[in-house]
Structure formats: structure tokens, C-alpha cells
Design a protein around this nucleic acid. Sequence first.
DNA 1: GCCCAGGAGTGTG
DNA 2: CACACTCATGGG
Length: 284
Amino acid sequence: MTRFQLDITPLDLDQTLGCGQTFRWRRAPDGAWRGPLGKNVYTIVRSGAAHTVESVSGGAEAKKRLTWYLRGADDVRAIQRTLGKDPVLKAGIGRMKGLRIVKIDEWECLASYILATYANIPRITKMIDTLCLRYGEPIDDEFHSFPGIETMREVPEKELRDCGLGYRAKLLSGTCRLITEDDLRAMVRAPSEELRSRLISLPGVGDKVADCVSLFGFGRLDSFPIDVWIERALGRLYGIEGSYRTLREFAARRFGPFAGYAQEYLYYNERVLARAGACVLSHE
DNA sequence: GCCCAGGAGTGTG
DNA sequence: CACACTCATGGG
């Protein structure tokens, strides 16, 4: 057992871990968050502005790993000042100040977002849980690790279908046969356009999944994934509609190198706050 | 039962 | 380039 303090500000765990970027963290009734990273499980408890973390192992590396995951080096305040020049975002950014983009493992992110096509978040969570339970290694009594690409490659497509993946079984199966850990390592260094075209060449990866994986898996903060919620938000707040390319180019012009953060603010507003009747973004 | 989901792939105009 | 259709299924 390792225990340490997390020094990352601003940070709101509900906004960061519960907004649909990542599917493996669980919120306890008391507000503590538990989740697996690699072959370790972390429990994060907030007390005032501080965060106390317990991990089942890892020593000094554990803190580095979690800080990397939460992108502790991002100057989120500066990003918010920049994006706040946009009057539409400015109004609501104050209620999403602790939302951070996370840095998910490349393979876990790729596989997760292939599964995320045309499914809602509870179902995505369930599919991933099932895969981890059946093919990952147990870490503690609650979590199994995310199964590696070589492990998944050996699983028959039909068996994946029995995990409740539906037509996604074929896509995930195809992707893990077309790519290796070495490929992914090389893609970490690739320019964004090359990364995007490599991702999009994989089965189950189109525009939207490629942008999600670039953003959350490869840390490209200028990526701007457009799903039905973002499409709605862009229409409602900016009066713009059109093809994926049209919307993506609009976002690049409007939000620049931190479009990914803008996307998360729009998404959180549209999905979480709107459902709670607390929409904060509006046009002018 | 109905609706929809952090869409992709394929074919057609 | 745009649109139309299919894919397979469970959560709300």
C-alpha cells in the first residue's frame, strides 16, 4: 500500500472521471473515486482542496503515473483564459474549472472507443468491464487490468460477441490483428495528421473515434471529436451545421491548439449540465 | 415496447 | 462531395 498527496490544481474528480472520457473509474457514495491504471488500483479522496491517494502498490512511481494520467503538467488555468476569449465558452467555463483531459493508455483508449460506437455510456462501461473480467489480470478484489493487445488478438471473434459487443466484435478483432504494441509506440511520435490517418485506417475507427483516440490516448489537445452531443452544441450555440469536416475545421479555427478542452466543456455542458437543467453555455 | 446511443462501413447519386 | 442504408444490442 502506497499513500501520497496529489498536487494538481484545479482538479474536480466528478467532472474529470465522470464525464465519459474514461470508462473505468467508479465513484463511491462518499465521493471517493477508485480506478485501475496499468496493474495498479488507485483510490482518490478529496479533503478540501487537497487530494489523498492510496494505491495498492507502486511506491514513488505510483504518484508519477497518476499525475501523468490526470495531465498534471497542463496549465489548465491558462487554457481556460485562452478559451474564455470565446464569449460562448466564457459564460460557463467557471462551473467546469476542475475538468481535466485525461491521458489514457493508447491501446486501452483505442479499444474502448471502438467499442463506444453507437452505444451509450452505461453499456460501454459494461462491455469494457466484461472484457477486463474475462481477459485481464486480477489486480484487487474489484478490478482487473485492461487486457493487452496480444491477449485480445488470440480471442476468437465469436467469443468477443458473447461479451455483448455485437457487431463491434469484428471491428475490435480486426484492429488487434492489424496493429502491434510497437506500432502504437511509433505512433506516439508521429505528427498529428499521420497519426490520424493511421488510426482511421483501422477497422472500427472513423473520424470521431480517431479524434477521441488522438485526444485521450495520444494527448493531442488540438483534436476535436464530434459526436451527436457536440454536433447539437455547435448547432445550438454557434448556429453551425454540416459535415464532419466542416465542423472540425470550424472548431480548429475557433478554438485552436486547445480545441480538445473546448470540446470537453461543450460536451459536459450539453450532456451533464443540460440533463440537470443547469445549462450554463449560451450564445452571447 | 419505444427510443437512442461519445458511429463505422459500404454503396450510390 | 453528400446522402442512405445496414450493422446488433442493451440501458433509460
